[in-house]
Design a protein around this nucleic acid. Structure first.
Length: 576
RNA sequence: CGGUGCGUAGCGCAGCCUGGUAGCGCACUAGACUGGGGGUCUAGGGGUCGAAGGUUCGAAUCCUUUCGCACCGACCA
């Protein structure tokens, strides 16, 4: 491909609304252009990388036995009403009516459609296991789209859905997808982790997220330094600590003037923060309230508490609500002497504490020597705290958890019968008996993965593509291309020979100064570069350099061509 | 949804406080020079100043409304 026959509108300056580096570089390198909040055009260069990744996904899905189809973007309300998600999904679901006043939505995901297909078409155990997938544009009307392709409203997703006769067969389908996902992200050359995850609004029994490690990631994940345990912190389990001694001290009300935070109270009383318990009042927004107790140096994991209580929403109570239950304002809250009956859930780390400090529900007053059970009742004990760096591994003995930031690029779920039962997707087993189908669903954010690759691989000059995702494998920069016929002829020859070998080449034949060309090629991040210049060419040599670093080499054209071909073959394998 | 900030040329911004001919850099067009890390010079084109309403002799500037965009948001009890 000649540069002058392609279209790469690069920018010298960073658009002011681009916050993260992938968004900035995708804008600057002319890969994407924004048309509205969270809605982008994939420009020619960006589309090439998108297609590269799609192809890797497609190959690995096919290898894993999944079958491609394509479902509609516009979906009728009736299927969503049937699955009960028309009411549950909220404003993220973009709804509208057609000319006959029938309700529709833009598909944010396709469980309803695929389940409808399955219940019509998959009627026998002989047809399973089966797994359908598609690569398709979704729309989710996000409250706050941001970070370019990282969290758009319209985005390309690969979604797959497996159908099995029972739970253990569904587990096998799940494992196949899990393996396929590992291969996909390995082939892209990305540094990632597969972590245990919360199932969120999709529902189901188990799931893993695939996280590309990057400091700008929106998710925190933990992984064990000794075993293979890794989890989203939302999900990461706390383990019961060793039982402490029985309480020795008497419950004593202590004056703590103006000491509201755990840090202030602990310092004032000269005890470690781990000797205190903090009490938080939360509500589900529908009139139900709970007091959560966590150790002073720990943090509450609202998601765990929400799941524990079976609530749909969870939020901090307002000061008025807190006053109503406790008679005090935040800073001095505790489970003793509540004004109204209140569910009290303690973290399991609190269960083993003794003689701790807790708010007295009076301004400037705390209790010391408090003991759960002895001094106040606890309704439930549960794992409700946020796990962090340094916590012990819940799977192995001696392992310590480390914390990473990650970008969620893939998510696999065991759905069980959540959709198949509400939508009545059944089959006949060997005995002719009607059974419910077991499902799994599996998603990969296509644009997000490409953006995540940039987050993970870039420098001050621009993008550094891994070869499998690069829009072009190699650039050929012709110095003084429009004037020096020998240079242009040599560059064209190298270009032709590389293309003949299956290498994707961008030949820079523009009438630009060399510096402009080098800057552009660094910015758009082509992994391999051959420079053809008059002086070196007179001695029969061209330059070869890798974007990711490494020395510039002076080679004869044949060598340069062979090196490029070898590197492309090595990185993209026979899968190209 | 709450908080904050911003909408002026394709991009990045100044001008607004204190109302009086709409500017700068990049990009773009033409020409010349230049030719190995975003070069120089000359001459150009491009704007309903987000929108609507109001105040005023006069509004990018002041007022009101509205739309759009961006960032931040519970770990504090």
């Amino acid at each position: 491909m000649r540069y002058t026959q392609f279209f790469i509108p690069t920018l010298k300056e960073t658009p002011s609304d681009a916050e993260v580096v992938s968004h900035q570089l995708m804008m600057r390198s002319g890969m994407i252009r924004k048309i509205a909040a969270g809605i982008y055009t994939y420009m020619p260069l960006g589309l090439r990388s998108i297609r590269k990744f799609e192809q890797i996904v497609r190959e690995e899905m096919n290898r894993a036995g999944a079958i491609e189809l394509l479902m509609p973007g516009v979906q009728p309300a009736e299927l969503w009403i049937e699955s009960k998600r028309w009411a549950q999904y909220g404003k993220e679901l973009l709804r509208f009516k057609d000319r006959k006043d029938n309700e529709f939505c833009m598909g944010p995901t396709h469980e309803e459609i695929i389940t409808d297909i399955a219940r019509r078409e998959v009627k026998s155990y002989r047809q399973m296991p089966i797994n359908f997938y598609q690569i398709q544009t979704k729309f989710r009307d996000e409250i706050r789209p941001r970070f370019g392709l990282m969290r758009g409203r319209e985005f390309i997703m690969k979604d797959a859905y497996s159908f099995d006769v029972d739970s253990s067969a569904a587990d096998l389908s799940y494992d196949k997808m899990y393996q396929a996902y590992n291969r996909i992200f390995e082939r892209c050359g990305l540094n990632f982790r597969a972590v245990e995850a919360d199932t969120g609004s999709i529902g189901g029994s188990a799931s893993h997220e695939f996280m590309v490690l990057a400091s700008s990631g929106e998710d925190a994940i933990v992984s064990c330094n000794a075993c293979r345990y890794a989890a989203n912190v939302e999900k990461a389990e706390g383990i019961k600590q060793q039982q402490g001694g029985a309480g020795q001290q008497a419950l004593t009300k202590t004056h703590t003037p103006d000491k509201k935070t755990i840090a202030e109270v602990a310092e004032f009383l000269d005890i470690p923060q781990s000797g205190t318990v903090k009490a938080l009042v939360l509500s589900n927004g529908e009139g139900q309230f709970v007091m959560a107790l966590v150790r002073g140096d720990h943090e509450l994991n609202e998601l765990k508490l929400k799941n524990r209580l079976g609530w749909d929403e969870i939020q901090m109570a307002t000061d008025d609500e807190i006053l109503r239950f406790t008679g005090s304002l935040p800073g001095f809250l505790g489970p003793l002497g509540l004004k109204e009956e209140l569910l009290v859930v303690a973290d399991c780390a609190v269960e083993v504490m003794s003689d701790f400090v807790i708010g007295a529900n009076e301004t400037d007053q705390h209790y010391t020597g408090a003991n759960a059970g002895r001094d106040f009742p606890i309704s439930q004990i549960a794992d409700i705290r946020l796990i962090g760096a340094g916590d012990p591994c819940p799977r192995c003995s001696g392992g310590i958890l480390e914390v990473w930031r990650g970008i969620e690029v893939g998510h696999v779920f065991k759905l069980g019968t959540k959709y198949s039962s509400s939508m009545n997707a059944t089959y006949l087993d060997k005995d002719g008996k009607e059974q419910i189908i077991f499902m799994g669903c599996y998603g990969i954010g296509i644009g997000r993965t490409v953006a995540a690759s940039i987050e993970q691989n870039h420098d001050d000059n621009g993008v550094i593509w891994p070869l499998p995702l690069a829009p072009f494998h190699c650039s050929v920069v012709a110095i003084n291309a429009q004037k020096d016929e020998a240079v242009m002829a040599a560059a064209q020859d190298i270009h032709d020979r590389l293309e003949a070998a299956g290498v994707e080449v961008l030949l820079d034949d523009r009438d630009e100064r060399p510096g402009v060309k080098f800057k552009d090629h660094d910015l758009i991040g082509i992994p391999l570069r051959i420079v053809v210049g008059g002086k070196n060419l007179a001695e029969g040599k061209v330059e070869f350099k890798q974007r990711a670093g490494g020395e510039m080499q002076l080679l004869v054209p044949e060598q340069a061509i062979e090196t490029v071909i070898a590197q492309v073959k090595a990185a993209c394998g026979g899968n190209r």
